[in-house]
C-alpha cells in the first residue's frame, strides 16, 4: 500500500467506517435511518460524548480520568438534592440555575482535586482517579442514602427533553461544546500546549510554560464536563440514582480510543472522539433494532473496538 494511502486511511478511515455503519444499518432495518431514530441516537449519546470532550483533553496530556462516572453521579445527586430543597422565598428559575451551577462546581472541585494530586502529589493519574472513583461513589451513596432522589418538575427536565427548533437540547449542548472544544484545541495557544504536554513535557517546560498549572486546569475542566453530563442524566431520568453513571469511564475511554487518540498523549482530536462515541452508540442502537440477544451485544461491541484499533495499529506501525 503506498504511503499516502496509509496516511489517508489513518486520517479519514474512521469517517469511512462511520458512513459504512450508517449504510449497513439502514439497509438492515427500515426503522434505522429515520429522523426520529437519528435524533434519539443523538440524545442517547450526548452525555457520554460530553464527558468524552474532557477525557480527550486529559488523554491528550498523557493522563487518564477514571472518576468521571462517580463525579457525574455526585454532581447529579447534589443538584437533585438542592432542587428539592427549594426555599420558598426563591423564584424557581433562579434556584434551578443555582442548583445546576453548584452541581457543575462540584464537578470542577472534584477535577481540581484530581489535578492537584496528580501534579503536586506526583501520583499517577490512573491511581488518583481510581481513588476518586471510589470516594465519589461513596459520597453519592452517603448523600442519597442509597435511595434515588426523584421528581423535579418540567423546567429542569427541559435540559434533556427540551428542543431548539426540531433539535433536542442535549444534541445542541453536545454539538456546541464540541465546536468550542475544537476551537480551543486547534485555534488557541493553550490548546496547542495541551498537545505539546502529551508529546513532550520537557520541551514545554523549557519553553517557559507552566505545564503544571495547565494540567490542573484541564482536570478541573474535565470535572466540569462530567458534572454537566451528570446533571443532564438526572434531568433525562427525572431522578438521581445512587448507581447512576456506573461504568461511564469505560464507555468514554472506548469512544476516545476508538477515535484514534493515543493513551500516551499528544495525538487525537475531539471531532474523531465524537465519531467514536457515535459509532459505539450506533452499534447498541442497531443491535436493539435488530433484536440481537444481549450477550451478543457485549461481544460485538468489544470485538469492534479491538478490530478497529488493530487495523489502526497495523497502518501506523508500518508507516
Amino acid at each position: 500500500m503506498p504511503n499516502h494511502w496509509r496516511t489517508w486511511a489513518l486520517d479519514y478511515g474512521l469517517y469511512v467506517v462511520f458512513a459504512l455503519l450508517l449504510l449497513i444499518l439502514s439497509q438492515m432495518s427500515p426503522y434505522f435511518f429515520t429522523v426520529s431514530n437519528l435524533l434519539n441516537i443523538g440524545s442517547q449519546v450526548a452525555m457520554i460524548a460530553v464527558v468524552a470532550i474532557g477525557m480527550t483533553m486529559v488523554i491528550l496530556m498523557g493522563e487518564i480520568d477514571l472518576s468521571v462516572g462517580s463525579v457525574a453521579a455526585l454532581a447529579g445527586a447534589i443538584t437533585a438534592g438542592l432542587i428539592h430543597a427549594l426555599p420558598s422565598e426563591w423564584p424557581m428559575g433562579l434556584w434551578l440555575a443555582f442548583s445546576i451551577t453548584t452541581g457543575m462546581l462540584i464537578g470542577i472541585v472534584a477535577g481540581l482535586v484530581n489535578g492537584l494530586f496528580v501534579v503536586w502529589g506526583g501520583i499517577p493519574s490512573f491511581i488518583v482517579t481510581l481513588g476518586a472513583l471510589s470516594i465519589g461513589r461513596g459520597l453519592v451513596l452517603l448523600y442519597t442514602g442509597g435511595r434515588p432522589i426523584f421528581g423535579f418538575g418540567d423546567a429542569f427536565g427541559k435540559i434533556s427533553w427540551g428542543h431548539l427548533g426540531p433539535v433536542p437540547l442535549p444534541i445542541v449542548i453536545m454539538l456546541s461544546l464540541y465546536l468550542l472544544a475544537w476551537l480551543f484545541l486547534c485555534k488557541t495557544q493553550l490548546g496547542r500546549y495541551i498537545y505539546a504536554i502529551g508529546a513532550n513535557k520537557e520541551a514545554v517546560e523549557l519553553a517557559g510554560v507552566n505545564y503544571r498549572r495547565i494540567k490542573i486546569g484541564i482536570f478541573a475542566l474535565a470535572g466540569a464536563f462530567s458534572g454537566l453530563a451528570g446533571i443532564m442524566l438526572t434531568a433525562r431520568l427525572d431522578s438521581a440514582q445512587p448507581t447512576a453513571a456506573v461504568g461511564w469511564e469505560l464507555d468514554v475511554i472506548a469512544a476516545v480510543v476508538l477515535g484514534g487518540a493515543s493513551l500516551y498523549g499528544g495525538r487525537g482530536t475531539v471531532a474523531k472522539t465524537l465519531v467514536g462515541a457515535f459509532i459505539l452508540q450506533l452499534i447498541s442502537n442497531g443491535l436493539n433494532l435488530l433484536e440481537v440477544q444481549a450477550y451478543w451485544q457485549q461481544i460485538a461491541k468489544g470485538s469492534i473496538i479491538l478490530a478497529a484499533l488493530l487495523v489502526e495499529r497495523i497502518l501506523r506501525g508500518r508507516r
Binding site: Y31, F32, N285, N288, L289
Partner: peptide, 12 residues
Amino acid sequence: LQVMQNIMQANP
C-alpha cells in the same frame, strides 16, 4: 429508557 426508545422505533 434507551432500549424502549429503540424498540418503539422498530415497532411504531
